[in-house]
Design a protein around this nucleic acid. Structure first.
Lengths: 336, 336
DNA sequence: ATGAAAGCGCTAACAT
DNA sequence: ATGTTAGCGCTTTCAT
C-alpha cells in the first residue's frame, strides 16, 4: 500500500529515522521544530508506518482472534454479528485489530489452535464455544482468552461473559405471575446442562417465591436440535390440562410453541400466554410478537473485549461477568 | 505465543536457518534427510514461524480487510454474517486472514481509508458500501477492492458481486402470473436508485412479456427508512381497488405489507398474495410465511473473495458478477 | 536534541 | 546441498 518508508521521510525532513520514529510514536526526544517539520511531511505524503515491522519489533500483534461458531441452524447465529460488533467497537478503542475464524458444530479443537497460533494474536475470544479440550490447552499454554455466551459453569475457573439466564427465567416467570397467571409451565432445552439448569432453576425459584407449584405435566424438554421443530412439542400441547402460560427458555422454543399451538387450534395469547428469553430479531416480527427478556447484544462483545484486555495486560479481573436482561412486552402474554 | 525462533530450530537440528526456512516453506534445496530431521524438531517443539516477519519480508500481508456496514435497523444486516462466512471460507482456502471494520450509516470515507491503510492489507471487500468518494480514491490508489451487495451500477467500471435483482423481480412477477394472478402491484424502495430500477424494471419487463398492464395505482414506493413501518403503506392498502397480488422488492417490504394488510382486515394470502425477494431469516417464521426469491447468501462472500484474489494476483477477471435467485414457495402466495 | 547502529525473526540471493 | 549474510522497516539503545 504505502511504498514510503521511515527512511524516505527522514531524508525528506533532513533528520534521522530516530527522529521520525519519535514523532510517529509521540515520544519525547525531538525539538518542537523538528517534530513539526516531520509532522508536515508525514501529512503531505500520507505516510503510514508498516504495521508488520512494528509488530515484529514490539513482539506484540495488537490483534485479537475471535472464534465464531457457525451453527447449521442459522437462528442460533442471530446475535453473533451484534456480539462481533461490540467486540469490534471496544477493540478499536483499545487499539486492537480483529481477525476471526468460523468453526462449525463438529470442529476439531486443533483446527482452532493452529489457526490461532498461525495468526499470532495477543488473545482470543471464543464465542459460543465450550470445547473442554481446547479450553484446557489454552489455559496450559497461558494464552489469554475469554469465553462469551458459552454456557459453561460460572465457577470462576474460566474468564467468561454470559447472559444471566437464571435471572432472566426468574423474571419471566415473575412477569407471568404479575399478569395474573398461576399455572405456569416451562419449555426448555436438555442441553447444554448449564443452560438448562440456569433457566429451569430460575423458573422454579420464582415459582417457589410465589408459592406456586411446579406441575411436571407442564414441563417440556426439547433437544436443541429440535428447537425449531414444532412437532417436538406435540405431546405437550396435546395434554388435556394445560397451564395458562409457559415460560420458554429461549425465543427459539417460543417460536416452536406458537407454531405448535396454532396447529392445534390453541390461540396465543388468548388461550395460553408465552413469555420467553433472548429477544431474537425475528421475535418482534412474528404473529403474535413475542414478549421476552431482552438484553443489549453488543454489550456481550464489549464486555468480552474489556475482560480480555485486562487479562492481556495482566491486570486484576473478575472472571464471571453476567449480563442482565430486562422484559420487553409485546403480544404473546395476556393479563388474566 | 511461541518463543522459539528459526535460529533455535536450526541450532537444534544442527543446520542453517536457510534449511529450516526451506523446510517451512516446502521449498527444494534441502536433502530428504535434513528435511525430515528438521520436520521432526518442528513438530516436537510445536514451533510456528512468526507471521509478522514473514509478512515483512514478503511485502505482503496475506490479509483482506472486510468493511461491514452496520445499519441502525438490524433487519438490513440479516445476511452480513453469512456473507462474512462465505468470505472467510474462501479466504482460508486461498491463504488469507480477514480483519474487518464496521462502519455506520453516516461514516466518513476517510475513516475507512485510515483503518484500511493502518492495517496494511492486500485488498478490501466492501459490503453494502457505495460511497463514491471512497471508491474513486481506492481506484486512484490502485488498491485492490471488490464491492458486494452495494447496489451500484453494473457498468463494468467497478468490480462487484451483486444479487440479480432484476431477474429476481422478473421471476417473482412471473410466478404470480403462473399462479393465476393478472392484477399484480409492486411495492419497492425509492433508493438506492440502482436497486429501485433493477427491481422495478424486472417487474415491468415481466408484465410486458405476459401482456399485462402496469396500473400506477398499484405501485408504492417506500423510503428505505420506512421499510419496516407498516403505516407507510396505509395509503396503498386504503385504495378502493386493489390487485390480487403484490411483488415486494425485498422481504422487508413484504413484512410491512403483511402487517399493514392485517391491520386493515385484509387477509394474506386469501385476499391478496405477496411474493417478495431476499429470503431473510425472519421470512420463514412469519405468519403467513413468505414466498420469496432466495439465493445462497454465503455465495456472495465466496464470489467476492474469489474476485478479489484475481485482482490481487493481477489475473484477468469479470467485473460484474451476478448471483441468481430461485423461488422458494411458502404461504403468502395463493393460486387463483 | 540528535544520529548511528544494533537488533526483531525471517527470506532469499549469494557463495561454497 | 548447505551455510553465510544482507536485507525487510521499524524501535531503541547508546554515543555524541
Amino acid at each position: 500500500m504505502s511504498k514510503l518508508t521511515i527512511r524516505d521521510i527522514a531524508k525528506m525532513a533532513g533528520v534521522s529515522t530516530t527522529a521520525v520514529s519519535f514523532v510517529l510514536n509521540n515520544k519525547s526526544g525531538v525539538s518542537d521544530a523538528t517534530r513539526e517539520k516531520v509532522q508536515k511531511i508525514i501529512e503531505s505524503t500520507g505516510f503510514t508506518p508498516n504495521v508488520h515491522t512494528r509488530r515484529l519489533n514490539l513482539g506484540k500483534s495488537y490483534t485479537i482472534h475471535v472464534v465464531l461458531r457457525q451453527y447449521s441452524n442459522s437462528l442460533f447465529n442471530q446475535f453473533a454479528l451484534e456480539t462481533l460488533s461490540g467486540i469490534f467497537t471496544e477493540s478499536k478503542f483499545l487499539g486492537y485489530s480483529i481477525v476471526f475464524t468460523f468453526v462449525d458444530d463438529h470442529m476439531d479443537c486443533h483446527q482452532i489452535l493452529d489457526s490461532v497460533r498461525g495468526k499470532d494474536c495477543d488473545g482470543i475470544i471464543l464465542n459460543q464455544i465450550a470445547d473442554p479440550t481446547l479450553l484446557s490447552i489454552l489455559q496450559q499454554e497461558e494464552i489469554p482468552f475469554v469465553c462469551v455466551d458459552a454456557h459453561i459453569p460460572k465457577d470462576g475457573s474460566l474468564p467468561l461473559v454470559e447472559v444471566d439466564y437464571y435471572d432472566a427465567a426468574y423474571q419471566a416467570t415473575r412477569h407471568l405471575y404479575d399478569c395474573g397467571h398461576r399455572q405456569i409451565g416451562f419449555i426448555g432445552p436438555q442441553t447444554p446442562a448449564e443452560y438448562y439448569m440456569s433457566t429451569f432453576n430460575g423458573y422454579t425459584a420464582a415459582l417457589k417465591d410465589m408459592e406456586l407449584v411446579c406441575n411436571p405435566n407442564w414441563l417440556a424438554e426439547v433437544p436443541f436440535a429440535d428447537a425449531d421443530n414444532p412437532t417436538s412439542l406435540e405431546p405437550l400441547f396435546s395434554k388435556p390440562q394445560l397451564p395458562t402460560a409457559f415460560v420458554c427458555a429461549g425465543d427459539i422454543f417460543a417460536i416452536s410453541a406458537v407454531r405448535c399451538a396454532k396447529a392445534k387450534g390453541i390461540c396465543i395469547p388468548e388461550d395460553i400466554s408465552i413469555m420467553s428469553l433472548d429477544d431474537l430479531l425475528v421475535s418482534q416480527y412474528m404473529d403474535p410478537s413475542l414478549s421476552t427478556m431482552t438484553f443489549p447484544k453488543e454489550l456481550l462483545g464489549k464486555k468480552a473485549m474489556q475482560l480480555l484486555y485486562k487479562i492481556i495486560m495482566e491486570e486484576p479481573y473478575t472472571p464471571v461477568n453476567l449480563i442482565k436482561t430486562t422484559p420487553i412486552l409485546r403480544e404473546s402474554v395476556k393479563s388474566i
